[in-house]
C-alpha cells in the first residue's frame, strides 16, 4: 500500500469559524496570539463557509521538490516537512508550490515555517483546543471511511425519522 501520512483535517460542518486554532498555534510556536504567525489558517467565506487549512503532509511534497536550496525535507515516518533554517533564505518558492497556502513566511525571521503537528507535544494543540471537535489528525483513508459512515447514518436517520 502506498504510504499515507496523517494530517490535520477540518470538518466544515462542525467548524464555526472561531479561529482558536490559529491563536493556540501562534501561542505554542511563538508565545503570542497572532493569526499571522499561525501554521493553520482559517478561511471564512461569509456567511456560512468556514474551514481551517494547514499542511497536508503530501507524499512527494511539491514544496520539498521546489526548494532550490534543499532546505526542506520530509520526515519519512510522520510526513511532516522539516525546514533547515540555515539553508532557507525565505525565497518563497515552496509557498508558490503549495496548493493549500499552508506555508508561512515569518516576516521577522524571513524563514518559512510549516506545521510539524506539534512535535513537542503528544498531539497537535489545535486539535486539543478545538472545542467543536472540527479538527482531527487523520489519514485520507480514514477520512473517507468516516465520511461514508456519516452519510449513511444521516440517510438512515432520514429514513426512520417520524413523519
Amino acid at each position: 500500500m502506498e504510504k499515507q501520512y496523517a494530517h490535520i483535517v477540518c470538518d466544515p460542518v462542525k467548524c464555526v469559524g472561531c479561529g482558536d486554532c490559529e491563536l493556540i498555534c501562534s501561542m505554542v510556536k511563538h508565545g503570542v496570539f497572532d493569526p499571522s504567525l499561525s501554521l493553520i489558517r482559517t478561511v471564512r467565506i461569509e456567511p456560512i463557509v468556514m474551514l481551517a487549512v494547514n499542511c497536508r503532509n503530501c507524499a512527494d511534497a511539491p514544496c520539498v521538490l521546489s526548494c532550490p536550496r534543499n532546505a526542506l525535507t520530509q520526515d519519512p515516518e510522520k510526513g511532516i516537512i522539516l525546514v533547515d533554517t540555515d539553508l532557507c533564505d525565505g525565497c518563497g518558492w515552496c509557498i508558490e508550490a503549495c496548493e493549500f497556502g499552508a506555508i508561512l513566511l515569518n516576516p521577522s525571521t524571513k524563514r518559512v515555517e510549516i506545521c510539524d503537528l506539534c512535535a513537542e507535544f503528544d498531539e497537535p494543540q489545535c486539535v486539543v483546543y478545538c472545542e467543536k471537535d472540527a479538527l482531527s489528525l487523520s489519514v485520507p483513508d480514514v477520512i473517507a471511511q468516516k465520511t461514508r459512515r456519516d452519510v449513511v447514518s444521516k440517510l438512515l436517520r432520514e429514513l426512520v425519522a417520524p413523519s
Partner: peptide, 17 residues
C-alpha cells in the same frame, strides 16, 4: 437555519444563519 456560526474567539457559536 443553515448553520450556527461564531464570532472570532467564541467557543459557543450562537449566530443562527
Amino acid at each position: 437555519t443553515e448553520k450556527a456560526v461564531a464570532c472570532v474567539g467564541c467557543p459557543i457559536g450562537c449566530e443562527q444563519v
